[in-house]
Design a protein around this nucleic acid. Structure first.
Lengths: 242, 242
DNA sequence: AAAATAGTGTCTATGAGACACTATAGT
DNA sequence: ACTATAGTGTCTCATAGACACTATTTT
């Protein structure tokens, strides 16, 4: 036995005396496909909200970090076992956001090159779709459509979570090199510009974009060029310094 | 009875079947005093970590939003009942960050003018201090000292939380008008510049700072001037719009 | 050769830093 | 009158947009 009051207190501490919320992790996985931003969703196979589209998500286990939960739900709900770039986004806490009980969601943001996840998405066992992201409305909710432009509704407050993710990515673009997560190893300056334009939803000036990127020191020229493009081929670049 | 499977599922849902973490809210309240950035701390009166300095914090109640919890802990732990500017910062989840049990902390950031909280801090019943913020180390932890420059240690992972808060405020400065929370209703351009310099920890160019601020449209001239300053008095401005 | 995009060079507009100069308070 | 800071005007430099022009590939 010890006379340390801190140790004695810890030994007697009973967390069940206090009310605790459930804590979930939802992942907004963004990618680029056919010139547009996409978000990976799955159709919920079970209650609650069965049959509705939702973000891959699941409850935190007590021996897991939030990032580990995020990686686990991507594997379980979307079949994605790739090592993806992931960061915490925000915690959503509206008391009525889940009808079961009080559930906080610590939303995470992930970015990935389409080619890296296409095989996993194609295997239909998880009923996963990559919905088109059409923008963010005045209330901060994402506007999503299917392949034909028909609006898609999301379960829970997931449209709000996706909206927050899009806003975050746009803001990060000019101080963090997030765009490289969406590209392959090698890319042309035009492809890099198209990534920026797609994320921002605006057109950028070609000349100053070239200068900014080349002057930034974040690009390393490979000396090789793209092939088979019907016009003068552009030089291929890699991200410099990981 | 209803045949709706969703309603039946919800009626039978038992959250206690799943393990849940405790969820706390910690508030990083920053202010400016004597030319330096300060963070409001209190000395913990009870176990765990009794006697150590910590952020005002407390457990989320299930009928509360996170912001409501943040306001409540500021009142309970620091005696601050003022209506403060508050926003969510990030959720801290290291499994060993609290020795009692798994505790997630949804940290919040608050900014306030020193004059608004000085009276509450002066009433010593909450053992509250405004520690000097000396910067952020390479690991992202805040460096704090007392009035005499002696380093202060914080309980739990609170130095990391404060470090994250400082980094966030610095980043917000050039796209959100956070600096006005730290000033009184009326202020001179010099005072505004000193707020920016204190937050950023750097010196700014006077001429271009003036131009930037006046051109930004965020300032409204009052036509009045400061008084009793021993030199030409500067014009007083207010924040425009809101 | 035509079409299409890559890539270079240069002019211009804008914003930041530097600095000189004038203005106005207290002492 | 002196000191200290407010505030204005202007020059220079760096960066972004605009545009003309050359280069290199496929068809």
């Amino acid at each position: 036995m010890t006379a340390d009051p801190e140790a004695a207190y810890l030994a007697e501490y009973d967390p069940s005396r206090y009310e605790r919320p459930s804590v979930a992790v939802d992942v907004v996985l963004l990618t680029l496909h056919e010139g547009g931003l996409r978000v990976v969703l799955h159709r919920r196979p079970a209650l609650p909200a069965a049959g509705q589209l939702a973000l891959p998500g699941g409850f935190l286990h007590l021996d897991e970090t939030l990032l580990a939960t995020a990686r686990r739900v991507l594997a379980e709900k979307a079949g994605l076992t790739e090592e993806l770039w992931l960061e915490q986004l925000a915690t959503f806490d509206a008391p009525d956001r889940d009808r079961r009980t009080r559930v906080l969601s610590v939303a995470h943001l992930a970015l990935v090159n389409w080619a890296r996840i296409r095989p996993a998405l194609a295997s239909a066992e998880h009923a996963v779709v990559a919905a088109r992201l059409r923008g963010v409305d005045d209330a901060g909710r994402a506007l999503l459509t299917d392949e034909h432009g028909a609006p898609l509704a999301l379960a829970f407050d997931h449209a709000e979570i996706v909206g927050t993710a899009v806003t975050r990515v746009r803001g990060k673009l000019d101080y963090a090199p997030v765009e490289f997560q969406l590209l392959g190893e090698e890319f042309t300056l035009r492809a890099l510009q198209e990534v920026h334009e797609t994320i921002l939803g605006t057109r950028l000036n070609k000349d100053s974009f070239r200068r900014r990127m080349l002057d930034s020191g974040r690009l390393a020229a490979t000396g090789r060029r793209e092939e088979g493009v019907g016009h003068r081929p552009a030089e291929l670049f890699r991200r410099r310094g990981v």
